[in-house]
Design a protein around this nucleic acid. Structure first.
Length: 705
RNA sequence: CGCGAGGUAGAGCAGCGGUAGCUCGUCGGGCUCAUAACCCGAAGGUCAUAGGUUCGAACCCUAUCCUCGCAACCA
């Protein structure tokens, strides 16, 4: 589709169960934003939609863990993610959410449409059900003994010990990881999307029509799926969190998250149309709309197989392209929030973009580096050193320095005004530069049209590189030394600076989709309005009027010092270490419950001096989330004990409580406070702590045995 | 296991049948308006490995190895 009437651009919906990291940003958001900004300055009709994906089993389970509601979880993360995108210049026309009523309605209508047309199948099956949690269990939430290697903690989908794929039915002695009890089998009815009916369509559409213009990883994955044989996929689940089925007597079922999430693109479009008094329908029904999805590679199957089938059945348009990136690693290891090996967008914003730390320029620095190393054809790697190099040697030294030296020379040698161009003195070097400007525009344009963002950005910087070379050849600062002897020199200086300034204006236009904050800054320096950034102006060399006086230059980027980089690397290491430690203590607790410690002799037990005491004061320990500093009266003395119970009890709640104390434990310093003893606590399966105390008040200092 | 993507200089990538290339980094020299840009030169690769096709292979074929991904959270 060469000249579509309108564009609809989507970025994968981030799952609102936590913060999102820079790998997400590099994968689906920055490329989409660059593409969208480019189309906007092309004056195309373009709509860029996204939003939080707020359904699925993981959110209620996360809520259960945190002792709160699913609504509270999404209400916490949705606004943070939205703000993060905004701070990084991701210019969605709307950032919506799938918990919105308009989305529920849209998804229900979609389901109903397919159901009424007979495009869905209904099947009954037996599934494991946790009677205590009152929930059908996803495979991942069932544990048991692996039939293959007899490992006792195999998951319902796979045994981590021997790597064998499993189904929950194969597990010996299955238990629910939610309640710790054996689940029961219950019959349940589900609606399925029979993908197998659409194999011919998919083969023709992807493997034939798009085998050349889609990225190889996308076509390859689709081929892999089709060749393996497409199966009907359940589109409903037994759950009370999500979009309810629009059918009577099916109140306990919701749409499966993968079914409702992509429909979020449609509902976001509707909401945007409402907000702006527009018609949403052409964006999803008119064949002249070019729909492009930007995603990460884990999302290929949904956007290149399942959602297109849904769209076809619903008479919508199909995506013109599904642009998928590979993954971005971090300092030699996979990025993973759960292992603490990641840089969250929120974290980067706090460390670099907050006014006092660097400002908007650093949003562009991240955008620049992530685009420069974008995993377009294979996995790539983010390193802080690489980040520093990209900033210092490309943004500061080439782009920033070029703009700065141009402005400085203009103020020194041309009275702060755009000098005239003396046509009679034009030479081959000038002509070549003018050609280069035009070429740069053509190249960037072509590369963006074929989604090669990394290369496109390179071409922009390359133009700045050529500009530096041009200025070097012209040496206006040398010419300025002989102004009186050679009357032509001022004219030669004028020509050089004139072209350098026109080129600067071009750089602003070309860099704008990639580094929008920088482009704005350049506009201010040149005292021109936003309209200059329109793409049609790129390649022109009359953007700045002769005689127009320009502002003093301000530096576009600043150098990043080694210490700042070392700080970040150290921070990353500490973060992952902390998460690992926290995890280790958790898994210890889990295994403790099922496996007993080795037998000990009475003598060993008798060494422990247990006493009853009363808490007389309690206060929170600063800079520690979990610790309380307690003063405990043991009758014969009062002791300071530090205990890790702050997440479970407030200081004022426990004053006066009797507790059991291990009072001959070696003293230990925690957060600088010496703790002389330990309070005994019982822990249930959810990790909640309970005091172990006598069932009626007795004398302080009483022994326990 | 199978399938998909990939394995090319310290890093990031291009090349996909005809003398191994680009950007950054490193080292030496020149120049200086500028946040040390630009110019000249150098070091650094048995193009994962082993076979094969060919006058000729990083590129085509076969096998092997390694990395990442693969339907219930994850760019």
């Amino acid at each position: 589709m060469n000249n579509p009437k309108r564009y609809l651009i989507t970025s994968a919906l981030p799952y609102a169960n936590g913060l999102k990291h820079i790998g997400h940003l590099a994968g689906a958001y920055i490329p989409a934003d660059i593409y969208t900004r480019y189309l906007r300055v092309q004056k195309r009709d373009v709509l860029f939609v996204c939003g939080s994906d707020e359904h699925g089993t993981a959110i209620p389970i996360q809520a259960m863990k945190e002792g709160t509601t699913p609504q509270a979880i999404i209400d916490k993360y949705h606004p943070i993610i939205e703000q993060n995108f905004f701070d990084l210049g991701i210019s969605f026309d709307i950032y919506h959410r799938t918990s919105a009523p308009i989305h529920h309605k849209t998804a229900q209508d979609f389901f109903e449409h397919l159901n009424n047309n007979g495009d869905l199948e209904i099947k009954e099956s037996e599934q494991y059900f946790d009677e205590e949690a009152k929930i059908f269990l996803a495979d991942r939430f069932i544990k048991g003994t692996c039939p293959n290697c007899k490992y006792e903690n195999a998951f319902g989908d796979q045994c981590e010990k021997c790597g064998k794929s499993l189904s929950p039915e194969e597990l010996i002695n299955p238990i629910s990881t939610l309640s710790g009890k054996p689940p029961v089998k219950k019959i349940t009815k589900h609606w399925y999307l029979p993908l197998n009916r659409h194999e011919d369509f998919l083969r023709e559409w992807v493997l034939n029509n798009h085998k050349d213009d889609w990225r190889p990883n996308v076509v390859g994955s689709v081929k892999s799926w089709i060749d393996a044989g497409l199966q009907p996929r359940a589109v409903t689940r037994d759950l009370d969190w999500g979009v309810k089925l629009p059918l009577k007597n099916e109140n306990s079922k919701v749409l499966y998250v993968w079914f409702d999430a992509p429909i979020g693109y449609i509902s976001a479009t509707k909401q945007w149309a409402l907000n702006n008094q527009k018609d949403w329908q052409p964006y999803w029904f008119d064949k002249e709309t070019k729909l492009v999805h930007f995603i990460g590679k884990d999302n290929i199957v949904f956007h290149a197989i399942i959602f297109p089938v849904m769209l076809k059945l619903h008479s919508n348009i199909l995506p013109e392209n599904v642009v998928s990136n590979e993954f971005m690693n971090l300092e030699g290891d996979k990025m993973s929030t759960s292992r603490g090996w990641s840089i969250e967008m929120d974290e980067y914003i706090n460390d670099w973009i907050k006014k006092e730390n660097g400002g908007d320029a650093f949003a562009d620095v991240l955008r620049y580096y992530l685009t420069a190393i974008a995993p377009e054809s294979k996995d790539s790697e983010f390193t802080w050193k690489g980040f520093q190099d990209a900033n210092n040697s490309e943004l500061v030294s080439i782009l920033g320095n070029y703009v700065n030296r141009t402005f400085v020379l203009m103020h020194k040698l041309c009275a702060g005004k755009v000098p005239p161009f003396h046509n009679e003195l034009i030479d081959d070097i000038d002509k070549q530069l003018i050609v280069d400007i035009g070429n740069a525009k053509q190249k960037v344009e072509h590369l963006l049209e074929v989604y090669k963002f990394r290369e496109a950005q390179f071409e922009v910087i390359d133009l700045a590189r050529k500009a530096n070379q041009y200025m070097q050849k012209k040496e206006p600062w040398i010419l300025a030394k002989n102004l009186t002897e050679n009357s032509n020199n001022q004219k030669l200086i004028d020509n050089c600076i004139h072209l350098c300034l026109q080129l600067t204006a071009n750089l602003a236009i070309l860099i704008n989709p990639f580094l929008p904050f920088t482009a704005q800054k350049m506009l201010q320096m040149m005292k021109v309005v936003d309209r200059m950034l329109e793409w049609k102006n790129a390649g022109k060399i009359n953007l700045l009027k002769v005689g127009y006086s320009l502002r003093e230059p301000q530096l576009l980027f600043r150098k990043i010092e080694d210490e700042e980089i070392e700080f970040q690397i150290q921070k990353l290491n500490e973060k992952s270490k902390k998460v690992e430690e926290a995890k280790n203590t958790n898994t210890e607790v889990e295994t403790k419950n099922t496996t007993l410690k080795p037998i000990i002799q009475f003598d060993d037990f008798a060494k422990i001096d247990l006493r009853i005491g009363t808490i007389i004061t309690a206060e929170k320990v600063e800079k520690a989330d979990k610790l309380l500093k307690l003063e405990v009266d043991l009758g014969f003395e009062k002791r300071t004990i530090v205990s890790g119970i702050a997440l479970h009890y407030k200081p004022e709640e426990i004053i006066g409580k009797q507790v059991t104390v291990v009072c001959n434990l070696a003293p230990r310093k925690m957060r600088g406070i010496e703790s002389n003893g330990m309070i005994l606590m019982a822990e249930d399966t959810t990790g909640k702590l309970y005091f172990v105390n006598p069932d009626s008040v007795i004398d302080n200092g009483s022994t326990v045995s």
